[in-house]
């Protein structure tokens, strides 16, 4: 019981992590995949913040009244990771938009037959001519 409550953030991390990864793997829609990826990454953010916490510590702001602080470093790190996550999401969504333009779909099952190695190459020019 102590584990369940005391380690609550970690349980949450596990649930989030598995949810995110499952969506990435199981969903056929590219946008949903990206959402899953986002959840997966968020779980790691939570993990980092959780490991920085020190029992009974205060937020890491220097003050004579306190002597035990939480570790600020993981939080700092995760700021960077958040930026990275946002950038990844942005590139991913941009790609999804371009895929929608080029193939007319973002569903994996529709894309697969169009993207095999033996399919003819479709260039920008041909695409414009067709539309």
């Amino acid at each position: 019981m102590k584990d369940l409550v005391g380690l609550f953030p970690y349980w949450a991390v596990i649930v989030l992590m598995m949810t995110g990864l499952y969506i990435v793997i199981a969903q056929g829609n590219l946008v949903k995949k990206l959402i899953g990826l986002g959840i997966f990454q968020v779980s790691v953010f939570v993990l980092y913040i959780a490991i920085g916490v020190v029992d009974g510590g205060t937020p890491p702001i220097l003050d004579d009244a306190f002597s035990v602080y939480s570790n600020p470093l993981p939080s700092v790190l995760i700021l960077t990771a958040i930026v990275v996550g946002v950038a990844t999401l942005a590139v991913g969504l941009a790609l999804a938009v371009r895929i929608r333009e080029a193939f007319g779909t973002v569903e994996e099952e529709d894309l697969l037959p169009l993207t095999g190695p033996d399919q003819p190459a479709v260039t920008d020019l041909e695409r414009e001519a067709r539309s």
Binding site: V91, I99, A102, F103, A121, V122, D124
Partner: peptide
């Protein structure tokens, strides 16, 4: 622009 499959290749790699 030469082959639209570059997009899906990039996306797969991104994921």
């Amino acid at each position: 622009s030469r082959d639209r499959r570059a997009l899906t290749a990039a996306f797969d790699y991104l994921i």
